[in-house]
Structure formats: structure tokens, C-alpha cells
Simulated scan of single mutants.
Amino acid sequence: MDRETRLKRLRFRSWHRGTKEADLLIGGFFDQHGERWDEAEITLFETLLEEQDVDIMAWAMGTAEAPERYRGTILEALKTLNYVPISE
């Protein structure tokens, strides 16, 4: 699958998680960072999306320790939470 197709697929999967909170967190994160990722980061994010939303959210908020395989630049960026859109 080419890069553009993978990114489109990831964007859809990021924004259709099952709860609005997870959609905002994971979808907003993808929109902010996804286009800049290299192939290894895309592959890692694809794997991350196989995890439960509650786990991903806990890792992002720092209430649970992420597995070693996810530790690195993507998880550190996910923890910043500055990509979540806030309605006024």
C-alpha cells in the first residue's frame, strides 16, 4: 500500500475509535503529526491503533505506563495533549 493510502486509512481509523474522547485524542494527534512521520513511525502508529482506546488514553495522560515497544517520539508527542481541539 502506498504512503498516501496508508495515511488516509490511519486518519479514518484515528477519528473512528468508538468514543468522542478517543476520537479527539487520537484523531487530533494524527492530524497534528501524521503527515510528518517516516515509514517506521507510520508502522508503529498502525500497531498502536490495535490497542484499546482506554490504554492509549491512559498512556497519553500518564496514568499508566506504556509498553516498551511504544516508548519514543510518538508516545512523547501523544503525551503533550496540545493537539486536542477544544470547542468554546
Rank of each mutant, 00 (worst) to 15 (best):
A22R: 03
W59I: 13
K79C: 07
R13S: 10
A22N: 09
R9N: 10
R3F: 06
L7C: 06
D23S: 10
Y83T: 00
E88C: 05
G27I: 03
L49C: 01
T63A: 14
D55V: 08
W37D: 00
R69S: 10
V54F: 11
W37C: 02
N82E: 10
T63K: 14
W15H: 09
H33P: 01
D2W: 12
P67Y: 05
N82M: 07
D31T: 05
I86P: 00
F12S: 13
Y70T: 08
R36K: 09
L81M: 11
T19M: 11
A66P: 02
K20G: 03
E68V: 11
A58Q: 09
M61K: 14
R71K: 14
K8G: 08
P85L: 15
H16E: 14
R13A: 13
T63R: 15
I42W: 01
E41I: 05
I26R: 03
L49Q: 02
T19L: 11
M61A: 13
M57T: 14
H33M: 02
E65C: 11
F29N: 00
L44V: 08
T47P: 01
P67V: 13
R13F: 12
D38E: 08
L44I: 10
H33Y: 05
V84Y: 01
K8N: 14
R11G: 08
R3H: 06
T80S: 13
D55Y: 03
G28C: 05
E41N: 07
A66T: 06
D38T: 01
A66R: 08
G28W: 02
G62Y: 11
F45Q: 01
E50H: 04
L81H: 04
L75R: 10
S87A: 13
S87E: 10
I42N: 00
G72N: 04
E21G: 14
Y83A: 00
E50M: 04
I74S: 01
R36C: 04
D38Q: 05
D53Q: 09
K8P: 00
D31P: 04
A60G: 08
M57G: 09
D53V: 04
T80N: 10
E35F: 05
E39G: 06
L44R: 04
W37R: 03
T80Q: 12
A60D: 05
K20T: 09
R71I: 14
D38S: 07
